[in-house]
């Protein structure tokens, strides 16, 4: 009766609808594989640290735990990854038989050359970050952002984003951007998670770092309502 219906049936009968769906599914599947599996592999290059560093071994050997090597300088700034000068204090000569140490002493200490460590947590240059404010003032644990790195026996592979040049740790291992631990990601949203909720503890006079760069929100606080939420003018607290 209806010629149109017939035609549709004819098409169907020809088996033409099957390939369309099939190809849709193929396209869908291919893009999913591309987006979830191939893309991350292409996006990040794999780099090895110049020296395989054993944190466990070092933590056992030093007296003051993490702070033996990662300390605050007198002016409140954070030393970050140790410089050769600190390492030399113990590793002036080869101490044991560990091939990594031998390599370190021969290649770097002997030549007075800094180790080109690949820093997993390096933020873009436009980001201001004060360790003192977070560790000393807010009394946060190192592991909140840096996981339990002190328990690692080997340096893991450093994955570098081929577009931005930054470490994969900033976006997070999970390509979808989801995280299960606080240290899984280091994007601005992750900073904002705390900054949107936490209250500031003390007033500006007692800040443990030089006052001349006390960030604006601290100065703008009003009574007990003060928070570390970023106020409107506060972009330049974190961004250069």
């Amino acid at each position: 009766m209806s010629t149109q219906d017939d035609k549709a049936k004819e098409v169907s009968a020809d088996g033409a609808a099957g390939p369309i769906i099939l190809f849709f599914i193929l396209g869908l599947a291919a893009s999913l594989v591309l987006g979830w599996v191939i893309f991350p592999k292409l996006l990040y290059s794999q780099k090895k640290q110049p020296i395989d560093f054993n944190h466990v071994l070092h933590v056992e050997a030093v007296d003051e735990g993490c702070e033996s090597c990662h300390f605050f300088r007198e002016d409140g700034s954070f030393s970050g990854v140790p410089k050769l000068a600190q390492c030399v204090e113990c590793h002036g000569d080869v101490q044991g038989e560990n091939p990594n140490e031998i390599k370190f002493v021969n290649d770097y200490v002997a030549n007075g050359r800094e180790v080109p460590w690949l820093v997993y947590a390096r933020q873009p240059d436009c980001v201001f970050f004060s360790h003192a404010a977070h560790v000393k003032k807010a009394e946060m644990e190192c592991s909140t952002c840096h996981e339990h790195i002190g328990e690692s026996e080997h340096s893991r592979v450093y994955e570098e984003n081929r577009i931005t040049g930054y470490s994969r740790d900033i976006w997070g291992k999970n390509i979808s951007g989801l995280k299960s631990n606080t240290w899984d990601r280091m994007k601005m949203d992750d900073c904002a998670e705390c900054h949107a909720t936490k209250e500031i503890k003390t007033d500006v006079e007692t800040l443990p770092w030089p006052l001349n760069w006390a960030p604006l929100p601290y100065e703008k606080q009003t009574g007990n309502q003060a928070s570390i939420k970023t106020v409107k003018e506060a972009c330049f607290v974190c961004h250069k």
């Binding site: 099939l22 849709f24 396209g27 291919a30 893009s31 979808s176």
Partner: peptide
């Protein structure tokens, strides 16, 4: 079929990161 593949690919891509 080709268009279908493309549309499927586009739809899929949108739900990948």
């Amino acid at each position: 079929s080709f268009l279908s593949f493309i549309i499927g690919g586009a739809a899929g891509t949108a739900i990948t990161p």
